[in-house]
Amino acid sequence: MGCVLSSPRRSRRTPGYEEPTVLASQTSFTVNEVEALYELYKKLSYSIFKDGLIHKEEFRLALFRTSKGANLFADRVFDLFDLKRNGVIEFGEFVRSLSIFHPRAPESDKTAFAFKLYDLRGTGYIEKEELREMVVALLDESDLCLSDSAVEEIVDNTFSQADSNGDDRIDPKEWEEFVKKNPASLRNMSLPYLQDITTAFPSFVMHSEVDD
């Protein structure tokens, strides 16, 4: 017991599989961390459709324990992870996107990703209407209850803090300044789990081809 038997070198890979050495060279992860992420990826990508690709329903299932019902934020994250925009998240997309959430990833990558996430209509700016829509969506999914006037106050206050040139839209530069002053706004952009991914998915050792 305790020993690792030699693994099948060419076990079946999911469609769109990319070599961990290549992904590690392009991301914040080590090769072993990418291999551990592959264990997570397989679990997620076979949870409903059994095709080795993560579909939106599988992503929702993992986040909410149910695949039913859209969630504005989860669906936005899915769409941003789906770099090829073909409706599924492939392994390389999964690793490259999650890399931004690594605690070691550059702050500028996190800032840029959050900007794209909140620029709901992809205009290159975050508009007040988008901010209001996101606050309302957050309230809908949570137990928080705020009056319409409280929502307006929060949206107006935040918007005026961020929109420093007063042109009624937040541009990437203004966003960068805003998150520097309000770092808690990017709290969700760092996942401590990613530092312990090899511990969380130790079975990667069974399939590992390198020793970091």
Partner: peptide, 25 residues
């Protein structure tokens, strides 16, 4: 009345943005 949080901080608490859930068994 709760202390006023900035709207982006509020949004960041969405479960849909809590990707840590993906790592929970």
């Amino acid at each position: 009345r709760p202390a006023v949080m900035n709207a982006f901080e509020l949004i960041s608490t969405s479960q849909g943005l809590n990707l840590g859930t993906l790592f929970e068994k």
